[in-house]
Nucleic acid binder design. Structure first.
Lengths: 191, 191
DNA sequence: AGCGACATGTAATACGTTACATGATTGG
DNA sequence: CCAATCATGTAACGTATTACATGTCGCT
């Protein structure tokens, strides 16, 4: 049910088409939720059936028509009730990179270093993107309209989350480089 | 396929029963992977069919018998190949708490503060657990056996991850307390 | 007498991912 | 001419969650 609530939350800030929503999840909103367009269209259909959202047909020329979804009062109430009543648990971490590092001794250090550097770059890019959003949309956070002061907080978490990853990657890279220098060829030499 | 590899990784460090594995995911390993016993039993059955793991029947008195799973050479190779070849993407974040904060203006601040304090406590507890594991198992990390030096790194990420959450919760709580003091009753008063 | 730990499993459902499908427009 | 953007969707599959099911032992 959680994707449904994430969609309602976005539609509480503005009206969007399914396509728009999919792009939102790739932007700032990606700091707290992810979804593909297939999930979104499926979920929007269900929300429409429940009367939580209402589509408005937008006829366009030169590009496909679209359905602009609006949050209904029912939908707004559904969202408020969910916020008020549901206990949300921290999302489970399933991080393949950490599995690899955990049993890193099974492969040559150089191989792990490639993966770690790649991840460092991905997180660094995301971090810079969030920093730019912070600069452009949330300069002087104390004097923001009320809604934006709330919306700023998830972005803050996105920032510290990505920064945490970058710092950990640096730590891990340094550690594995040391291991690599101590023993040159840990696999394939004398096993 | 990722749970399969997480299980193989654990079985590369020791032999476990399904029940044991489920408990591992609640301990230190929980810093990088989560799984319930139902998932684990299903996946172990599949891994057995592939010849990646081999069960040893342990007959016990006073408690149920169990199957101790051992990693086979095939399984070890499967794991090493996966580490070497697969590009692992950062796991998608789907954090209900951040959805709630994002549209926090829809509910009374006091309500959000309850959820935030609850989360702060959960992350604080996890943080303290990881700190204890660090103290008891990874004191003096430079002089650890090679395998433990790798195993230490995911725990380090667990530590900074939980710490990041605790710090963000403090920031969010302070911010929302300020909002609360500025405007006493944002819902239900004059809407 | 009831609960929690031990130990394994089935079944149903919900949720997420990947592949396939269509079709116009714009820019390289 | 090919790829990307806009825009919506279906179908199949894989993974995860929740509920149900069983049965002993030791503790309170």
């Amino acid at each position: 049910m959680a994707l449904a609530h994430a969609l309602l939350a976005l539609l509480a800030t503005d009206s969007f088409s399914g396509y728009d929503l999919a792009r939102e999840f790739e932007g700032t909103v990606g700091s707290f939720w992810k979804a593909t367009h297939q999930q979104i269209y499926r979920e929007l259909a269900q929300l429409e059936q429940k009367g939580a959202v209402q589509p408005e047909a937008i006829l366009q020329e030169g590009r496909p028509n679209k359905k602009l979804y609006h949050l209904t009062p029912t939908g707004r109430q559904l969202l408020a009730d969910w916020i008020a009543t549901s206990d949300s648990e921290p999302c489970p971490v399933r991080e393949a990179l950490l599995v690899k590092v955990f049993v890193g001794h099974l492969v040559p250090p150089a191989l792990l270093l490639v993966e770690l550097r790649r991840h460092r770059q991905l997180h660094q890019q995301r971090l810079e993107y969030y920093r730019e959003m912070e600069r452009s949309h949330f300069a002087d956070p104390a004097h923001l309209p009320l809604e934006d002061r709330y919306a700023y907080l998830p972005l803050r978490r996105g920032l510290t989350y990505e920064q945490g990853w970058v710092e950990w990657c640096d730590e891990a890279i340094a550690c594995i480089e040391t291991i690599d220098q101590e023993r040159p060829a840990p696999t394939g030499s004398s096993d």
